[in-house]
């Protein structure tokens, strides 16, 4: 997994639950078959109420009408991002849409674990809530090595917490790659 992630910000509020990330009615599609898998990109974050979608102004769709890919690579969330169900379809949907990282003060533990173990995207934690400091469409660059997020639009930098215990799994690209590196499976 590369050390630098660059792309546009999509800003959301607190307690973004898995029903908002991928509404349950869409969980029927196969994650293996590419002709169905693309629908997760289509419907990623489609459960977010319109007023809260793409802050501060709202009204921004994460994935555009009739599109399967998002223009946003980095999601900025408030605390408790990914709460609710254990559906791994949630981090998978964000990845399928094209997101590569989430930045939030805290995560619901199953979402965090799924994001890391499945190697879908990197969930960065921050001390401060960045949802007011960053605006949707801002151009961001995340350096994993420096544990830093640079807002290229505003020129401000923000510290990220080091990945800690899960850094090795993130680096490997998921729990299976990690287990193979450690000789736990062939």
């Amino acid at each position: 997994m590369s050390e630098t992630i660059r792309g546009k910000a999509f800003v959301l509020g607190e307690n973004i639950d898995t029903d908002q990330i991928i509404p349950a009615e869409h969980l029927v599609y196969s994650l293996d078959d590419p002709s169905e898998k693309k629908y997760y990109g289509r419907f990623a974050l489609s459960g977010v109420p319109v007023a809260n979608s793409g802050l501060p102004d709202g009204g921004v769709a994460f994935t555009g009408e009739n599109s399967y890919e998002s223009q946003f690579a980095i999601i900025i969330g408030g605390r408790n991002f990914g709460c609710g169900s254990s559906r791994e379809h949630a981090p998978a949907a964000l990845q399928i849409a094209g997101a590569r990282a989430v930045v939030a003060p805290s995560y619901a533990r199953i979402f965090y674990r799924n994001a890391v173990d499945g190697g879908f995207l990197v969930p960065f934690e921050t001390e401060e809530d960045l949802t007011k400091a960053i605006r949707t469409f801002d151009e961001l660059e995340i350096s994993r090595e420096q544990s830093e997020l640079c807002n290229l639009t505003s020129g401000k930098s923000h510290a990220l917490k080091p990945l800690g215990d899960v850094a090795d799994i993130v680096q490997a690209g998921g729990i299976f790659a990690y287990a193979r590196q450690k000789g736990m499976m062939s």
Binding site: S86, E88, N114, D117, G118, F176, M184
Partner: peptide
């Protein structure tokens, strides 16, 4: 406790999982 598909697939093959 609840887990995702990847963790569950890991258990299916190994019978184990890491927990904090």
């Amino acid at each position: 406790t609840g887990i995702g598909n990847t963790d569950a697939a890991f258990i299916l093959g190994t019978g184990k999982l890491w927990v904090k």
